[in-house]
Design a protein around this nucleic acid. Structure first.
Lengths: 136, 136
DNA sequence: TTTGTAAATCGTAATCATTCTTAATTAGAA
DNA sequence: TTCTAATTAAGAATGATTACGATTTACAAA
């Protein structure tokens, strides 16, 4: 997902264009990694010293709700990154050293739908952690 | 895992037998569900009004470290339950209504080891959320 | 059984991420 | 330009978790 597409979605849903949102999206689109609200605040404080956590959290959760960002919980903190452009459902390998992401073109749910009849599946989480080739 | 086996492990590692630990283990062994530190405190406060959170969190993390409990993050809170007895690696379906657990006799990693050469896999998370047959 | 000592617990304060509140500001429509 | 709802600032509140000094306890050894 790039910033333009994110703005299309936001405009479409009636959200206003603000420089804070622009900056949050810019920061996120400049990295592949999952980053925290604090990471974003630290960058934004340079230009806007009186930056509020509330602004960041509120916008991050708006973005997640609109499918602009994806969210995961790593070591007790929420982490965010741009939603993948890929049109197919997939999962991630997350490098614990450098934080980089590799897309896993595979979803275990496909083979599982039939394995547990009677169970209504609403959601699933599948993530792999370790070290990427350049980190070990 | 039953309480006796838990005590074997604790004794073996040089941990002392205390009534607080006994009670925490008892509470956990009486349910199949993932429960929180607060759930445990609420029960224990009846007998020990001056119960400390520190005691519960410290012991829970000891137990997790020794493989007596397993831990997961649900809606921002750590949840714990007794480690499964099963000798084979497996995953869980977690019912979002009643909290009950169903064992999934299937691990997606088996088919994945070869799919990402060069990546050193250290850990993985695979959980399915939804409603169990009696809840929908 | 008594005693010594490290481990465990208590009670509370501190910390950390996140959310809430109210007032002020701002983007974009009319 | 003006109006209005959306957005933001600033800081307080919340809720989970951890840390800490003082006290108590388990248990091994005398």
């Amino acid at each position: 997902m790039n910033i333009d597409k994110a703005w299309d979605i936001l405009k479409n849903e009636g959200f206003k264009k603000t420089d804070k949102r622009e900056q949050i999206l810019t920061i996120l689109s400049e990295t592949e990694k999952f980053i925290t609200a604090k990471d974003i605040l630290n960058v934004m404080k340079k230009e806007h010293p009186g930056m509020s956590y509330d602004t960041i959290y509120r916008n991050l959760s708006t973005f997640v709700g609109l499918g602009i960002l994806e969210e995961t919980e790593l070591t007790g903190e929420k982490h965010f990154r741009m939603q993948c452009e890929a049109d197919h459902h997939h999962h991630h390998f997350i490098c614990m050293s450098c934080g980089n992401i590799k897309e896993i073109p595979f979803c275990p749910m496909e083979s599982l739908h039939h394995a547990i009849p009677g169970y209504e599946i609403e959601n699933h989480k599948f993530e792999i952690y370790g070290n990427c080739p350049s980190c070990h």
